[in-house]
C-alpha cells in the first residue's frame, strides 16, 4: 500500500532517532550524517505517530489516496517492551 509522501527537513532534524525507533513500519532510519531519512516511504500507513513526536517539527507526512490504518492507543503498554532503566518515580 501507500502513496503517502514522507518528508524530513534535514536542517531542523537533530537525529534523535525517535521517528526511526517508534515508526511501526520502519519508514525512517538515522543516516551517517546524524539526520533521519526516509528509507521506506511505501510502507507508511500515516498512523500519526511521527509528526507530533518529532521534537523539532522536522517530519511531514503528506497523505496519499489509500486507506489508512490508525496507530494503536498510545497508553497501551507494549508487553514486548521491558523498562529500559531501573525503576524511577518522579
Amino acid at each position: 500500500m501507500g502513496r503517502n509522501r514522507v518528508v524530513v527537513y534535514p536542517d531542523w532534524c537533530k537525529g534523535c532517532g525517535i521517528c526511526a525507533a517508534f515508526c511501526p513500519k520502519k519508514v525512517f532510519a538515522v543516516g551517517q550524517d546524524g539526520k533521519a531519512r526516509v528509507v521506506n516511504e511505501e510502507a507508511c500507513v500515516n498512523c500519526g505517530f511521527c509528526e507530533p513526536h518529532c521534537p523539532d517539527f522536522a517530519v511531514l507526512v503528506i497523505p496519499g489516496e489509500t486507506d489508512q490504518t490508525p496507530c494503536p492507543p498510545e497508553t497501551a503498554p507494549d508487553p514486548a517492551e521491558q523498562p529500559a532503566a531501573k525503576e524511577v518515580k518522579p
Binding site: G17, A21, V88
Partner: peptide, 11 residues
Amino acid sequence: AVEMFKWLKSS
C-alpha cells in the same frame, strides 16, 4: 533518548 521514551511508554 529513545530509551527514555520507551521507559515513559512502558511505565
